[in-house]
Structures are given as C-alpha cells and as structure tokens.
Nucleic acid binder design. Sequence first.
DNA 1: TCATACCGGGG
DNA 2: GTGTACGGTATGA
Length: 745
Amino acid sequence: MRAGDPWLADPYPGIVSVWAEPSGRAWVWRRLEGRLRCELAHFRPWLLASHLQDFPQGELSADPEAPLTYQELGGPEGSLRYLIQARDGLDLSALLERGIARRLGRRLRLGQLSDYYQVGWVEQYLMQSGRTYYQGLTFPELRRLQLDLETTALDPGQGRIFLAALSDASGWQAVLEAPGEEDEAALIAGLVRAVQQRDPDIIENHNLMGFDLPFLVARAARCRVPLALGRSPRAKLLQRIQSGRKVRYSLAGRELLDTLDATYRMDFVVRALPSHSLKDVARFFGVAPAGRVYLEGAQVHATYRSDPELVRRYALQDVLEVEQVSKRLHTGAFALAKMAPRRLERVAYAGTATGILEPLLVRAYLQAGKALPAKASSPGGLPHAGGAVTLFASGVAERVVKADVASLYPSLIRSRRLGPSSDRLGAFVGLVDQLTALRLRHKAQAQRQDLPAEQRGEHEAMQAAIKLLINSAYGYLGAGELAWFADRAAADMITKLGRETLEQICAGLQAAGATLIEADTDGVYFCVPAELGEAGERALVSQVGRSLPEGLQLELDGRYAAMYSYEVKNYALLGYDGRLTVRGGALRSARAERFAVAWLHRALGQLLRGDLAGLQEGYLRARRALREKALPLEDLVLRTRVTKSPSEYTASGRKEAAYQALLGAARSWQPGDRVAIYRSQAGWQLWEEGGELPGYDLGHYLGLLRSYAERLRKAFHPDDFEQIFGSGQAPLLGRPLSEISPLRI
DNA sequence: TCATACCGGGG
DNA sequence: GTGTACGGTATGA
C-alpha cells in the first residue's frame, strides 16, 4: 500500500467506474481526453482482524506468495493489527465464517463482529491502490444518460411499459414506444441497444431504484429480453442489493444515480420543498421547461392513446428535468468521490459521516501501516446532550442582528484537538485540519476572476462538499454503534464547549447593551438600539468576537428590519429589502390547507411592517371569504395519497380521513391514487375537480383560521389580540386600532 | 408520554 | 452481499 499523505488520493486520472470481484480482478474504466478505455487491474482481497483464532492452524502464512497471508501491523493488543490477504475473497470469507462458527457455536456475518473490518470489493481495490474516481475530470465531462419509463400501471405484475424516454447531457434524446402489448419486448431490446450505443458513465432518473429499474427488470424477465445494460464483459450485469425494505441495483461499469435520494438529502438541509416529486423539485430549481406538460400519473396511458404526441413531450420533459436536477444535486457527491475510496453511487447514497469520513480514516491507518483501533463500544448512561437552544424573548423586535460562530464544532475540534480517544494516529483531527486547509484553497480558487467559469464552478463545488464533510465530523463522533471511531465523551465535550461559547457570546452582547431574542447552538438573534447603525452593529459583533478563545470567529450573519419571535426555531424575519422569511414548522406547516398558510404569511408581513389595520382587515376578509364561499375550494382541500388497498385499509382497523372520504363517496381506489379531501358537516369528503359539492363545514374552517391567528398571539397584549382577532365582528369597546401596537422586545 | 410502524416517490 | 437513509406522523401500549 502506498504510504504518504494519509488521505490525498493517488493522482491516477480519469476513473469513471470500477467493478471488482472477489477473485481479485478489478475492471477500471477511465475517460482520458474524452476517450474511454477499460483496464484490468489486480488486487489482493483483504480484511483486518484483531486476532488469528478463527483461522485454522497452518493455513496462514507470512509468505506473500501463499494463498492466505497475514501481516502484523503496529498496534496495541485488541486493535485490528492483522492484515489478512487472500488470493480469493470468497474463500477468505468462507474460511473465516467457518472458523467463527466453530469458536462461537453459531453462524455470524463478519459485519456483526467487531473483531473484523471488511469493506466491499471495489472499496478494497480503491483503498489498496490509493486511487479514487474522477481525478482530473470535471462534472460536465461525464456521460450522463437519463432514462424514464411510462407504464400502464405502477405494478409490473399489472401493467407494462408502453414508452421509454432517453436523453443525455449532450442534448441527444430518443423516445421508444410500444403501442401494443406485443411491442414491449422490442422496446426493451431497443432500450438496451440505445444504452450500449450511448455508453454512459452514469444512468439516472427520479426514483430509478424504487420504480424504473425494478419495473424494467420484471418486464424484461417476462419478455425474456436480456438486460445487458452494463459495460462488463461478464454476464451478470444488473445486481440487486437489498437492505431492509429498500432495494438497490448496481451495474458493472456505470454508476446508477437516483435524484429522489438526492432530493431527500437536500430537503434535510434546506427544508424548502412542497414535495419530493420531480415536478416540484424542478420548479424549485427553476428548470421546469416553458410549456411543461403536467399529467396525472394515472392518466398518462389513457392520454397516450388519445394524444400520443403530448405524452412524448411529457416524457422528454421528464428526462430533461432529471438531467438539470441531477446536475444541481450531484456535484457534491462528485467532488467527494474524488477524495473517498468509494464508488460515486455509494458516495451519493451514503451520508458524509460513515459514508466518507470513515473510509478516509481507515485508509489513513492502512496507508500508515498501522493497526486499526478496536471498535469503540457505545456506552449506556446519559443521552448525549446537544447544542444549547434558548428563547430569551417572544414578540416583535426591530433592528435585529444575527451573529454566529463560523464552523463552531469544527473550530472546537481543531483548536482543542478533540477526537476519538481510540485514534492513536490523530487521523481524525488531522483530517479536519487538512480538509479545512483544502477547502480554503478551493474557496480562493473559486473566487479567482481570471479562471474560466467552469473551473471556478468545480472549485465552488469542491469547497461546498468539503464544508459538508467537515461539518459531519462532529456528528460522526456521536453516531454510536454505526461508527467505528465513535466517541461519545468527545462528542459531549464538543457540545459542552459549544454551549459555553454561546453563553459567553450572549453575556458579551448583553453587557454591550444588546437585547437577546433567541440563541441556537452556534448563533444568536438580538436587537440593538436605533442609534447604533450598521457600522455600530458590526463593531459590536467584532468586539464580542475578540473575547472568544483562539480559533473561534464570531461573524455577522444577517441584519433585519424586524422579527417576530414565536417559539424556539419558529420566527419570521423582515429584511431591510422588504423580503419576508418564515422559519419553523409552527409557522409554515407544509401539509396544511393552502388558504390558512397563505393568510398567516400575509399576516406576518403586515405585523412586521406595522400595518395593523391591514392585519385586521385581512383576517376579517378571510373569515368573510369562508362564510361567503368565495374561496376556491382547492385552497381548502388537503391533498394526500392513499397507500393501502381497500382491503388493507379495512384490515388495518385505523380510521384515516382520506379513506373515510373514499368510502363515503363509494369510490373504489388503488394504492398510489391521489385524493383531495375537505371537511363537510357529515365528515371528510372527497373533492373532485368540477364535481358537485355539498357545503363545507364552515365551523371547522373558521376554527382552523383562528388556530392560525393564535400563532400571532405573542405579538400582542391579550386585550389587543382580542381586539384584532376577537369574534371577527366589528370592534366593540376596546381601544381604537390606531392606539394598539405590538408587544416590542 | 413513549415506542413502533409506516410513509415518501414512481405510472 | 459491491452493506448501514431519515425525518415526520399516526397509532397503540
């Protein structure tokens, strides 16, 4: 194995895919100057062991030519200090599992024992060679092909493929069609031919793993068409990997990317999506094409029979959106795959902590020739305490400033050298140091105006991906059983120091005359006296920042004209540019009835601008609209999706609004159908576009509106609140509106 | 109140 | 068997 920088990759350029087998053969596809070539490489399958008890006497040899060899690495008793290598990885596993069964009296998988550490074959090859994907390549140089199936049903047992749309990032596109059942085999064969001919490095779609591939596999089997989609000269081309409920596929020579998975991960970070559907994600990124055709899933086949051209356009727009969305969601994974010894599809699918950091740490030990520390056992006892969250004041504040510590946890890790106690090499803290330095280099390159935009974009993607990786370092320490190097005491120490830092900042701001509003983990919202001005705010932040320990930097993160503080992590901000930002589930519940959320957001804007007359008038208008049935009903309905069949629902014994509405309407349904429901006097009803409607339950919707108004209660004195939102009738005896003002912080 | 089961998304 | 998703919500003890 290569020695040297413990995590920098071997600069072996151009790898776009690797397929390795337990026989020790690895096919490496490289793209060099646009041309693809395939090389056959060899590696010696390996694993790490803490002892040799499970190997039969005499089988292991220190002679590197022997079928089964071991090598002792430097490290203490209990660490994984034996590097075992074999000519064949499957023989090695089988031999070892027999030995384990003999010793423990039961069959166990290697992964269940912390005496051993083994990774997949591709990762074995990559770690051993020090190579990684994509050295010297930019994302646009990859050949990415999008593939989308249109089918007559969701279940391949009940329906078939009638159309497939394909495209690639170069602008090529194709539509394959099977108008009749007898045409499906030809469609699938044509699809396989097209993939082989375009020869992509990556195949992608939205819900590729959950829909298109399982459907394609099932239909190809039914039609007896071989699914030779891979690049490997070998037969087995599409492999099914099941873990829990989730099924994934893997293909030799091509990476399979699912934009749905990437969407989940993005939503976890930015929480800004109305749903995870392709259409909504494309709209979010602003890449939905002009004249986009929107069809209900269940209508697509019927539409195809009456208007095939419309469905062709629809399907091509799908693959076009996937290409655009994938480009935006996968640049981080692409950047990380250049660093970590893993396939792109694994990097994209796994989280950064166990997915990237851990392989980097393990590789650091291997390349240093040192024993891997024993796996930390996760202690019981008190749960891990996280960051501090404090609500100091609720109500309306003006001249609000947000200050936060730049990269609080990584900074603490570095300045206090906090890492896993088992980490004898100090690889963890060293990695955070080196990643930080590397990120700064990429950040600087990304800002160089003399570089072409494309190169700057690559540097920007790298620095953003490295930032994520650095930020996951703390989470990794607290990951418990999942993480080989987990160390709860170290994680606890980081959060404890973080809480102390936050307290110190709050105390410093308060002493300097600021009024605290809310503090959360690494940042604090506060408001300042009117005379301070922007320069004064900046001076205040840097003054408080100077009192922090070495290595911690306090920054001014935002300035706002006004803020409504409701609860911890639930607030609205009005920028100096007039833009309203609403945060927190209580104020922006996603599945709620549209009219209520829309009203609340309008009301928050009015509140923060001090337009109380508008606030009251808007509330009365909303009530009036409900009474007079002036609202479009689609703003009142709850849209949801049924997942159980009628018999499954009956068997479940639960009562759920959507099914009650379907049963009430005597409508049959299938799992997957979308329904829109609303509340009538008689209970939940089905809403059908243009259908005849019984009246909705006015009391229910007035109550709902009122419950939203309640979220503004903390902005007013109770009497004033009643004055504005009271019964909804004309104001009675209270103060005139002009004398009311919100409760100021 | 806490634990667990299920869901998303795809036609 | 080319390995560990994940947070929200509904339901039941």
